[in-house]
């Protein structure tokens, strides 16, 4: 069967991985042309690390980077949470794929609509 591989990673699995392992897993898969769906989103720090790592992998004509989309984080953070520096809850679905194969069509607070194409 021809097609595009899609890996759906559970939050249990994600919880067991370190940040470095998560980012490596994501980039290795995406470079192979896979679409990754994470049950639980990355932390903001992991997101910036992923952007950095992606930039080092971009090679004109070969790899153009990633498309990544998640829902925005929790809206509600009380001032008490802020004082305690409680991290914002990021437990939301994230989809990641090669920039030349995954196109976001429409997103809003609750729905992500994407198109996947073969290489």
């Amino acid at each position: 069967m021809k097609g595009i591989q899609m890996d759906l990673i559970s939050s249990d699995k994600l919880e067991r991985l370190s940040s470095v392992e998560k980012i490596r897993m994501i980039l290795d898969s995406v470079e192979d042309g896979k679409i990754i769906v994470l049950e639980r989103g990355l932390t903001p720090q992991e997101e910036t690390k992923l952007i950095e790592a992606t930039m080092t992998k971009i090679t004109p004509g070969e790899f153009a980077g990633i498309e990544i989309e998640s829902y925005p984080g929790a809206v509600h953070q009380s001032w008490f949470d802020k004082l305690r520096k409680k991290p914002v809850d990021r437990a939301r679905l994230t989809v990641i794929g090669p920039a030349d194969q995954l196109k976001m069509l429409k997103r809003d607070r609750d729905v992500i609509s994407a198109m996947v194409s073969a290489r």
């Binding site: 932390t43 903001p44 720090q45 997101e47 910036t48 952007i51 998640s70 925005p72 984080g73 953070q77 802020k82 520096k85 991290p87 914002v88 990021r90």
Partner: peptide
């Protein structure tokens, strides 16, 4: 989302 998340995380 990433920029906002980072600023929120660091308050």
């Amino acid at each position: 989302v990433t920029v906002i998340g980072n600023m929120e995380a660091r308050n």
